[in-house]
């Protein structure tokens, strides 16, 4: 079981963060919201529709209308240029003339600061640039909500700052709902309105960033401060060291 009795509200027009240690199922949660995975029980409601009871065509329709998703790797189509990647959803889902699409692409790329990189291929981009292109592509159809899967992981400080600014600006300027899944505490806390901290399939605590900072849960404190030892022990469960040392070589195999 990955999640046990989880209950979350994601408010329209706000930035909601879902934080938790690696392997706590944060990405799985986004896939559940997007309808890529089915829960054994429970429901996910997006824009008034129960995602997992929709027919395939209704689900694709809901995704097109309401959702964008930014994958950790960017998930750019490797055989298309930056320009064509951003054009992809527009060409697939609209009947706009190529000229209008051209203008839209330039505006979307301008928003992420990569208008000048439109002729590059995905393999020529740095990780941060790839994520920005993916963001431009995700907002191409102006979705109501964007889900960010670990947007800051593995980024240098500058790219990280750029991404933080972009998420903040999109939310403020366009009123886009943002769901940010991350374990980068400071960056995430700086832009989110509400934070859910999950661990072991449960919501451990939720609240505004300020409220969480003053949390009296030792676990949340350790997570936010990044302490090496605490309720989550430094050592993986094992018998005492002295017993292990005296047990001889055999103990490795048993």
């Amino acid at each position: 079981m990955i999640f046990d009795n989880i209950d979350m509200d994601i408010e329209r027009g706000k930035v909601t963060a879902i934080m938790g240690p690696s392997g706590s199922g944060k990405t799985t949660l986004l896939k559940l919201i997007g309808g890529q995975l089915k829960p054994d029980s429970g429901s996910v409601i997006v824009d008034g529709e129960n995602v997992h009871q929709l027919s395939q065509s209704a689900l694709y329709d809901l995704r097109r209308r309401t959702m964008g998703m930014l994958f950790q790797s960017g998930a750019l189509l490797t055989d298309l240029s930056v320009y064509d990647n951003v054009a992809f959803p527009l060409r697939e889902h609209t009947t706009l003339p190529e000229e209008a699409i051209h203008h839209l692409i330039l505006l979307k790329l301008e928003a992420v600061g990569l208008r000048g990189a439109r002729h590059l291929m995905p393999a020529e981009l740095s990780g941060g640039m790839a994520r920005r292109v993916a963001l431009a592509r995700a907002i191409a159809l102006d979705p109501q909500m964007i889900m960010f899967d670990e947007p800051f992981t593995g980024q240098d400080p500058i790219s990280m700052g750029v991404l933080v600014k972009l998420i903040h600006d999109m939310n403020q300027a366009l009123g886009m709902t943002a769901v940010v899944v991350s374990h980068d505490v400071n960056e995430t806390a700086s832009i989110s309105d509400y934070i859910y901290v999950i661990s072991d399939g449960k919501v451990v605590q939720s609240g505004s960033p300020d409220a969480l900072k003053h949390s009296d849960s030792a676990w949340v404190k350790q997570f936010l401060d990044g302490d090496a030892d605490g309720p989550v022990p430094f050592h993986y469960a094992a018998e005492p060291l002295i017993d292990d040392l005296m047990g001889g070589i055999k103990s490795v195999r048993s």
């Binding site: 694709y60 995704r63 998703m69 950790q72 750019l76 992809f88 959803p89 697939e92 592509r137």
Partner: peptide
Amino acid sequence: LMKSTEQLSGMEMMAVN
């Protein structure tokens, strides 16, 4: 490779089957 680089998932989320 498209699957492991999330290109297929990405396409699904862009509502392209």
